[in-house]
Write a protein that binds this DNA or RNA. Structure first.
Length: 506
RNA sequence: GGGCCCGUGGGUUAGUCUGGUCUAUGCUAGAUGCUUUGGGAGCAUUUGACCCUGGUUCAAAUCCAGGCGGGCCCA
């Protein structure tokens, strides 16, 4: 704690999360929100570096699984959107009518996509004959090209991805990294011979998400979204949700199994071994800067951010002490820095001419996992002082500095995982029992704002709707983790191992 | 779609109801100098703001209208 009554750079307490979050993203120098367009923040170097490192984790997973990076154009001609709109509205209508999409015949219908995109209508002063829009996601441009690229079964599977900016015209309240209009977006799109190939891809996606979230020290809930919350073009949608400290869930990753629905709309076919044309099966996998938002929200505390070592822009900040008193402090600290750099660590020497306390506070706000102090006394004794952002502070011999720093980084990451999962279990609790007397369904105890509720459920869509209405919360979908022993469904009373969650979503 | 609120230096804030004493207050941040440097140093000097346009008035940060920008709540 600082001196009584003295604000720490004006950071509100973390317990007031709705004020803390928007303040910390600016105070820690991740973004500047003052750009005069709502939902379009300026990325500052520190924030951009963290995001690039997160992208690095993603790229690593993509490389391990044989995906290739592409880059598709930002602009999409309007007539391609029509194709997608038709598909989406047909599938949506089919779903609502409860029939197979192929049985349904549709007239033109506006699915509403047009309202959610930014339009380019002019070239210079001339109105464009065919307007274009900024991609909200890249199915349309990509699948247009895929149908040119895929000829034969030997072209499959086609595994692509790109990390680009996408645009959505949000009218609701925006929040840095959580709801923005210019989205830093990762999207992987794959094309397979059959449903089985696409299904295997979905499980590969699940593995990748968990590896990335492990590096970010984030626990998550993975669910199969309810039908009404599935992306209309998808057969089914899987999603990973992180629980923020205010109890709202944040969807950080989704992966969709499309079957051959899009392939039929975009005429995406291949010739199989028998010389026959077959429609392809497809998947997509998406993530965004919400990953950064979620680690800011989960790990930060009253003093500022805490960066998971895997993506900390600086893993070690070195603080020279009293360097004007002794000439050897700076050279010695540079030596240590070079040693750490050679070991592959990201470092920074803070040689500003300010008092050491200021530097400690500054780097605490930015969440640097380890601060390393070196002053004349340390040089004489052959040691330095290591402060971990999670609280520990101790002396360490300079001769073995790489090992000390590496194990300190591991201990920070471990501690973050412990804290995050204890936080997580505090926020998720069992749904109160439901009675169904004459006056309809009732909870035995009231729903508390800021909690996520888990419960056994095997009911129908309309049972789910009852729960949503009764609680005022949203169903996350069927969780991939099931109960070990069957339990009674909260609505039907039948035994089931299936687990669901109700939460307020971002 | 419906309703409500707000716009003052980089940040935050006083002043707006009741027009003049406001070339605009406090804190913080920034700059310069000297002294300082093992967890937020001190002193001195100093830079910096009334969202835009129009109206009312002798007089507008303040009242009115419109615009632009931001936020909240409800469907």
């Amino acid at each position: 704690m600082g001196a009584p009554g003295k604000a720490k750079r004006g950071i509100p307490p973390k317990s007031d999360f709705n004020s803390w979050y928007p303040s910390i993203v600016e105070i820690a120098d991740l973004v500047d929100k003052r750009y005069p367009i709502k939902g379009m923040d300026v990325w500052k170097p520190y924030g951009l570096k963290a995001m690039s490192l997160i992208d690095g984790l993603t790229r690593k997973q993509m490389a391990l699984t044989g995906h290739h990076e592409h880059r598709f154009p930002l602009l999409v001609p309007e007539n391609l959107l029509d194709k997608e709109n038709k598909l989406v509205s047909r599938l949506k209508a089919a779903r609502e009518a409860g029939v197979d999409p192929s049985e349904l015949r549709m007239e033109e219908e506006d699915s509403g996509f047009k309202k959610e995109v930014y339009w380019v209508t002019h070239g210079g002063e001339n109105e464009l004959e065919s307007p274009m829009f900024l991609r909200p996601t890249s199915e349309t441009p990509m699948y247009t090209m895929f149908s040119l690229w895929v000829r034969s079964h030997s072209d499959l599977p086609l595994k692509t991805f790109q990390i680009v900016n996408t645009f959505r015209y949000e009218t609701k309240q925006t929040r840095s990294f959580i709801r923005v209009r210019e989205i830093h977006f990762f999207e992987a799109h794959t094309v397979h011979k059959d449903e089985k190939g696409a299904t295997e891809q979905i499980s590969e996606d699940a593995t990748m998400v968990q590896r990335i979230l492990h590096d970010l020290c984030l626990p998550s809930l993975v669910s199969k979204r309810p039908v009404w919350d599935t992306f209309p073009g998808a057969w089914y949608t899987m999603a990973a949700d992180v629980v923020m400290p205010n109890g709202r869930t944040l969807q950080v990753a989704t992966y969709h199994h499309y079957r051959d629905q899009w392939a039929r709309a975009f005429d995406l076919k291949y010739e199989d071994q028998n010389g026959e044309n077959q429609f392809c099966h497809q998947t997509t996998f998406g993530m965004s800067e919400r990953l950064l938002g979620s680690l800011v929200g989960m790990h930060g505390d009253d003093k500022g951010l805490i960066m998971p070592p895997a993506v900390a822009p600086y893993q070690v900040v070195l603080l020279p002490i009293a360097s004007h008193v002794r000439d050897d402090v700076i050279p010695e600290i540079h030596k240590i820095r070079d040693t750490l750099n050679d070991a592959g660590l990201r470092t920074f020497v803070d040689d500003r001419d300010v008092r050491p306390g200021v530097k400690h506070y500054d780097w605490e706000i930015k969440g640097v996992p380890i601060r390393l102090e070196l002053g004349p006394r340390d040089i004489d004794s052959g040691t330095c002082i290591i402060s971990e952002r999670i609280g520990r502070k101790y002396e360490s011999p300079i001769s073995d500095i790489v090992n000390s720093v590496n194990s300190a980084l591991i201990s920070v990451a471990d501690e973050l995982r412990v804290r995050a999962s204890s936080h997580f279990s505090d926020l998720v609790s069992e749904l109160p029992e439901i009675s169904n007397e004459g006056d309809g369904h009732q909870f035995s105890s009231p729903i508390i704002d800021g909690m996520v509720y888990s419960f056994p459920f095997c009911g129908t869509d309309s049972d789910a709707e009852i729960l949503e209405r009764l609680s005022g919360l949203t169903m996350l979908g069927e969780c991939v983790d099931e109960y070990e022993k069957p339990r009674k469904c909260v609505i039907t009373g039948k035994e089931t191992t299936k687990k669901q969650h109700l939460a307020r979503m971002y």
